[in-house]
Design a protein around this nucleic acid. Structure first.
Lengths: 138, 138
DNA sequence: TTTTATGTAACTTATGATGTTTCTTAAATT
DNA sequence: AATTTAAGAAACATCATAAGTTACATAAAA
């Protein structure tokens, strides 16, 4: 299944924006991410809607951070990007009345919800300034 | 992103096989899963390779459990089915030498590995007989 | 020999991030 | 005012993979 690498890419971009301290164009970011500027705008606009970056049109324009890195967590960016599920595992809904299917789905969902809660908690504990200074795992 | 519902489907099938106590054909399972028999064979054959089910050809043939439910865990079935990742999140590898990209990927991967370990542990704790008698969440 | 069933190869479909083209809009430079 | 530079946005193509489908081979029982 194709992976969603937007979180990885956007975190990468945000830390670079912090270090450069100036507006960076979509074309420049596209070169950096080995992609094209439309993909950059499409993804960055989700962060702009949540107030983490600003975009300025025209000469000298481009993208800048709208908040300092220490006020942004991995969770903030993850939430800005994803409406869809964290897991590749899905549940079936073929027989709403079958008690076995219900028990199976409940068992799987129970585990996945616990795991998702853990991911969200951990993401919430990491601010982006920690990524700028060399992250060390727990 | 399209979900992998094979785990859910196969657990459902295994518990039904236990309750029916007789060979069930791929056609019958396909009706049960609202799919077609080739999809059933393709997926069930992964469980057969690991020794969880047996298949018999010809008249009166079909699929039967090769192990009792209490000797099979969610983890066993999960492992039989998936070589691919549990998460929809992927890491980029655009600049192997960029320390920021490394820090970003390390931070994400750190969290995902912890979450995956939790999922595998929980899956390993649940034997399939628990699903036959009405599963209650932790 | 016929019927019933799995085994398997080859191909199509569905989904969503990604990639691409093209045009519009806005702001700074000339 | 005209030109250049940049984001915004619509429309469409690509890719990967579970799922779905078609067709045929193989094996076992009736």
């Amino acid at each position: 299944m194709r992976k969603d690498s937007r979180l990885s890419r956007m975190l990468h971009v945000l830390v670079h924006l912090h270090q450069l301290q100036q507006a960076v164009t979509s074309d420049q970011l596209a070169l950096m991410l080995h992609t094209n500027p439309v993909v950059v705008r499409r993804t960055m606009s989700l962060l702009r809607e949540q107030g983490y970056v600003s975009a300025v049109k025209g000469h000298g324009g481009g993208w800048t951070l709208a908040k300092p890195l220490h006020e942004i967590t991995l969770l903030d960016i993850h939430r800005s990007l994803s409406e869809s599920s964290l897991f590749t595992i899905g549940l079936t809904d073929e027989h709403n009345h079958c008690p076995i299917e219900k028990a199976v789905n409940l068992a799987i969902d129970d585990v996945l919800q616990e795991a998702e809660a853990l991911v969200l908690q951990r993401f919430g504990e990491v601010t982006l300034d920690k990524l700028a200074t060399g992250y060390t795992p727990r």
